[in-house]
């Protein structure tokens, strides 16, 4: 087990190096002089000022030196400062991360709440109409992009029924948990749709093979109720792939929150990224991309390790 952990951690460090290098390289390639972005186009160009800014940003150093000094700063939590708002990128992220994290977790929970019964039902009624109906529903849910789901949720619950606010965000600390949930439920549902489809499909297919195991037959012959067998005996061994996918999908989810946060005007990390892109605020783009990629890579590593804990066969590979 220790060997697996060490090997995985070494790979993690390697991947993180590569990911940060790629992000830094990509943003360093950005055409146009960053000095222009800071000074604005109309300012009178004083060569002394330009030189000072360039020295301040370290732009005169070779690329590799800039990368390592940036990486060193990033390692201590300093991702630089926005050229436009003058705010520390790390501060921006820590302010906004709880919002994005809440959305992501809420959507995973919502997805699982719906996916487990749907998947279990599909496996239990395999080949019957319940199975066909749920798999058709899953196909559709997989095909509708989350921003479209979001728009029609807004249309139904905000415009037609007027139950929920169409956009904005209430913080649990200032507005209370209920107001917060009211603003979070629609975006989280929009994000949850695809997840739910993927999860229920996996649970169904794993469950179908679990239900053919001998111990299920044994449980049945003991006279246990179907529901008890399904949820107590069969669900746990059938949830392995879902667990991995929850982790892997986290990346897709982080990408999805970018769109959903923009749609619902939610002050999360993703919305800030889109703002930064439209303002061409390179430091912020760089910082948020590296941050998201790091979180994603780390989560994948944790999932891999968890998987090895749950399924001993993997350790021996």
């Amino acid at each position: 087990m220790l060997k697996v952990v060490v090997a995985r951690l070494v790979r993690l460090v390697g991947t993180l190096f590569a990911v940060t290098f790629l992000t830094f390289g990509m943003t360093a390639l950005l055409p146009g002089d960053p000095v222009n972005a800071i000074l604005g186009v109309e300012t009178v160009r004083d060569p002394a000022v330009i030189a000072e800014i360039r020295a301040d940003l370290g732009l005169d150093n070779p690329f590799i030196v800039r990368y390592f000094s940036w990486l060193g700063d990033a390692f201590t939590g300093d991702l630089g400062k926005s050229w436009i708002t003058d705010q520390q990128v790390m501060e921006t992220i820590t302010q906004r991360l709880p919002v994005t994290a809440e959305l992501a977790f809420l959507s995973i929970i919502l997805a699982l709440i719906f996916a487990i019964p749907i998947g279990v039902l599909g496996a239990y009624k395999q080949g019957k109409w319940q199975d066909n109906a749920s798999s058709a529903g899953v196909q559709v849910a997989l095909s509708v992009p989350n921003f479209i789901v979001g728009i029609f949720l807004i249309w139904l619950f905000a415009v037609k029924l007027g139950w929920l606010p169409a956009s904005n965000w209430s913080r649990p600390s200032t507005d209370g948990i209920w107001a917060n949930l009211k603003t979070a439920i629609m975006p989280a549902s929009a994000l949850a749709m695809t997840q739910m489809a993927i999860f229920s499909r996996l649970i169904r297919s794993d469950m179908v093979s679990t239900l053919q195991e001998n111990y299920i037959l044994a449980a049945r012959s003991k006279g246990l109720s179907d529901r008890f067998i399904l949820f107590r005996h069969a669900l746990r061994p059938s949830s392995l792939s879902v667990m991995t996918i929850v982790g892997i999908n986290f990346g897709a989810l982080l990408g999805g929150t970018v769109i959903i946060e923009t749609l619902f005007a939610i002050p999360g990390v993703g919305f800030r990224l889109i703002n930064a892109i439209s303002q061409r605020d390179i430091i912020v783009i760089q910082g948020i991309t590296v941050f998201i990629a790091t979180v994603y890579v780390v989560i994948n590593t944790i999932v891999d390790l968890l998987y090895a804990v749950v399924d001993p066969r993997i350790r021996r590979r």
């Binding site: 790629l22 892109i277 990629a293």
Partner: peptide
């Protein structure tokens, strides 16, 4: 395959956004 893994280590849409932002 190591370089492939690195690119796939990014959330696809986030990497795409970062790349697209480069082009004026």
């Amino acid at each position: 395959m190591a370089s492939v893994d690195v690119i796939l280590a990014f959330p696809a849409l986030v990497l795409l956004l970062a790349l697209v932002s480069i082009f004026e």
